[in-house]
Design a protein around this nucleic acid. Structure first.
Lengths: 97, 97
DNA sequence: TAACCCGTAACGTTATTGGTTACAATATGG
DNA sequence: CCATATTGTAACCAATAACGTTACGGGTTA
């Protein structure tokens, strides 16, 4: 609400809103629990870094979720970004050949 | 039934078996149609490179598929690799806190 | 004031994606 | 048999991403 809404939300936004804030977790504490640096988690929750496969595993362990859910969110976001970035790519259809 | 988990196939394997071979497409021709270099496509179909979001878009256009299907396959593969690489990560559970 | 949290800049390392060019091996067709 | 096509791959390049440490300034709060 407060931030710019993207069509697919950045996974870091979901992480902050649905995981950190409900538990009253600080970025510093969550980073320590996840076993990553404070900078790394900060970049994620501020939308400047994506969820890597290994990070998805860490999140799944820490928050009792599925790693697939995090990577799927990331894929949706990446796909949205890719579509914005290259509105017209030169690709020939091959299924009618 | 299966104690031995089959590793998820590399998306490049699927690409070769389900897209290139059925249509009799060479790597050279498919690369040209996709608008990428021959090396790039060769690396993918030989399992030495992943499907990037932009490549998923190209494949979806060329083969009339969904880009999500390609990225989901890639996620499954990446997740499997990540699990193999780090069998035990130091991550603290936060959902019971 | 002191302690804490946060964002972020400034360095580094490592890995991946993508390109071009070039070469050798193996087809395949005339 | 020979010419061409196809393929994998190596050697270079650049850009980007993830992750780390260290350090700084701004904000909040006890």
């Amino acid at each position: 609400m407060t931030m710019t809404m993207h069509n697919p939300p950045h996974p870091g936004e979901v992480l902050r809103d649905l995981c950190l804030e409900p538990l009253g977790l600080t970025v510093t504490d969550a980073a320590a629990a996840l076993g990553v640096s404070r900078k790394t988690l900060s970049a994620i929750v501020n939308g400047r870094a994506g969820i890597s496969p290994e990070m998805a595993l860490r999140l799944s362990i820490a928050f009792n979720t599925s790693p697939e859910s995090w990577l799927n969110q990331q894929s949706q976001y990446d796909l949205w970004v890719a579509r914005q970035g290259s509105p017209k790519m030169k690709v020939q259809k091959l299924y009618a050949a």
